[in-house]
Simulated assay, not measured.
Amino acid sequence: MPNVPENSATDRPATEHGPRPGARGVLTALLDSPFAGMSPWILMALVTGPGRFEEAAASAFALSLLLVVGTHRRGSSFKLLELFDVAYFGTMAALALFASDRVIDWLEKWGGEMTNVALVAFALGSILVRQPFTLQYARETTEPEYWTSPLFLRINYVITWAWVGGFAVAAISGAVGDIVLDDPNNFWTGWIIQIGGTVFAIAFTEFYPDYATYHAAVREGWPTDEEPQSMFHLFEWVPGYVLAIGIAGLLTEELSTAVGIGVIVVGAVGIKVFRQLTAAFDTRLAQTVPGTSKEA
């Protein structure tokens, strides 16, 4: 298939189909994103705990099966991540049913770290075999003629590396909690840092395609209707996440009242400051970059 042409406003490797209205459209968009394949892992993390490994494994396995069935009924292609979910959580569910109490106790302590390592291995493995797992999701919202374009492929390699990084942060944080602190449910290592790594990967997945497409258009002289975005957009989630940390810390009593309120204030103020900084840098880019595009 030829590379992306340069003489048409529609010749962009990240062209998406029109929006799908209503709740059905939101559900479809969710199923067409890597977050769908991540949902069983999130469910496992939320449900698991002392004496609840069986329930957690069964719930995650049921959700992974539901996603695969839903994908088939929608006529979409099966995703590697969703099939991996079924295989992994099917194994965990089988162990929960047939393993000895001693094995179950071991899994309750180390199961979280096992899932983190499994996700790192899966994401990195998909890169090594030259099939980054985000490709299958990106193809659901991209015209087929762009699937082999160098830009489309490069975007998905970069995004998959971001997920490798997010999973690795969770794995390292979990290892510190399990091995160093001997506390798998530690507020910081078991939850805040791990969730933060995942949220970053999700934010990067949303941000990078338009960002990379725009800058490629400027560099190569392609016409584009993408708006320039500063890197601040990639971290828009941080102040809100800080705010959520303060609230969660107060509710779980992991933070003192003074510290929790202070964190909440920092997050709330940060949201406003970040919006102002983002708008200012976007305006600056809009004033400078388009001129470069016209000269290209």
Rank of each mutant, 00 (worst) to 15 (best):
P2M: 05
N3E: 15
P5K: 08
E6D: 10
S8N: 13
D11G: 04
A14L: 04
E16V: 10
E16L: 12
R20A: 15
R24V: 09
G25H: 04
L27D: 04
T28Y: 12
A29S: 07
L31C: 03
A36C: 00
G37A: 01
M38N: 12
M38Q: 13
S39V: 08
L46H: 13
V47I: 15
R52F: 06
F53A: 07
A56K: 00
A58G: 05
A58S: 11
A58N: 10
F61R: 04
V68T: 11
V69C: 04
H72C: 12
S76Y: 15
F78I: 10
K79N: 12
L80N: 13
E82P: 04
L83I: 10
V86S: 09
V86M: 07
G90H: 05
M92G: 09
A93L: 11
L95G: 13
A99N: 11
E108L: 04
K109L: 08
E113D: 15
A118P: 08
L119I: 09
V120N: 03
V120A: 05
L128K: 14
L128H: 11
F133R: 01
L135G: 00
L135I: 03
R139T: 10
T141N: 00
P144W: 00
E145V: 01
W147E: 00
P150N: 04
R154W: 00
N156A: 02
T160R: 00
W161Y: 11
A168W: 01
V169M: 10
A170S: 15
S173D: 10
G174H: 02
A175N: 03
V176D: 10
D178G: 05
I179Y: 14
I179R: 14
L181V: 05
W188D: 08
T189V: 07
T189M: 15
I195D: 12
V199S: 01
A203S: 01
F204L: 13
Y208E: 12
P209A: 08
T213M: 05
A216C: 04
A216D: 11
S230F: 05
F235I: 14
W237M: 04
V238M: 00
V238G: 00
V238P: 00
A244L: 06
I245P: 06
A248M: 13
S256A: 08
T257Q: 12
G260L: 10
I261G: 06
I261E: 08
I264P: 02
A268I: 03
A268H: 02
V269W: 13
I271A: 11
T278P: 05
R284T: 08
L285M: 14
A286T: 07
A286N: 06
T288K: 12
T292M: 14
T292Q: 15
S293Q: 14
S293W: 12
A296H: 10
A296R: 14
